[in-house]
Amino acid sequence: MDYDKLLNISVELGCRLMSSGAEIYRVEESVRRLLQAYGLESPEVFAIPNCVIVSITTPEGHPITRMRRIGAHGTDIELLERCNDLCRRLCVLRPPLEEAQSGLSALTEHTPQYTPWNILLGYGIAPAFFSPLFGGGIADSVCALIGGLAVGFCLLYGSRLMGSNGFFRTAICSAVASLVSLLLVHIGLGHNLDTVTISVLMVLVPGVALTNAMREIMAGDIISGLSRAADSILTAAAIAIGSAVGLAISQIF
């Protein structure tokens, strides 16, 4: 068997899983099971949120290691489910490596993605319906919808302007959120500035990072858990700093 190829496939699978937002234990467990299904005795897998290292020893006693770095990534549940399915299937069926490779390559292309317009719509309707939960009326919902669309637009199309720094990006988006809400309330469309701003900020809050951090810690991956927890605290700080811009301006006028 071509162990180099097997290693490449398993690292690739780990990378796909990680970049779709899987927990560390799922990545490690999936890659380990895949390698064991192909007959390796004790594969070693180590993963942290932006790196996967897989090391195997061939039956002849020759060790091979591969490391793969993973850049910044979002959450893609559909891809995660498909990766999980593929891994389960590979472990049970154990197809030839070429077939496994082509199945893995087909994964990204065949996973359905929402169009940018649909995602933008999602960014719009989430704040619009959060606003009644915080005590807003219909006018506030409309304001939140507009604010959410503005933030979604910044997140989707502004990455070239804002760079890839997550902290900075969140701060800018949060400033946009508070400024748009301030403007809309100022021209008389919205009634309650706080409600509108909070609803719009809900699309930025680090709920995902917080939940993931706790899941990692509960699963025993302390390093990854702490790094994700730090991520969520930094994101919250960025939101606070960004919204301070709007608040400070509203105090001046």
Partner: peptide, 24 residues
Amino acid sequence: PVTGYLLVALLPLVPGGGIYYAMS
């Protein structure tokens, strides 16, 4: 995987308002 359901269902409770009011 359980992640997807948990992430989205918990979102209404994430304290976005708290961050904002604290800053205000």
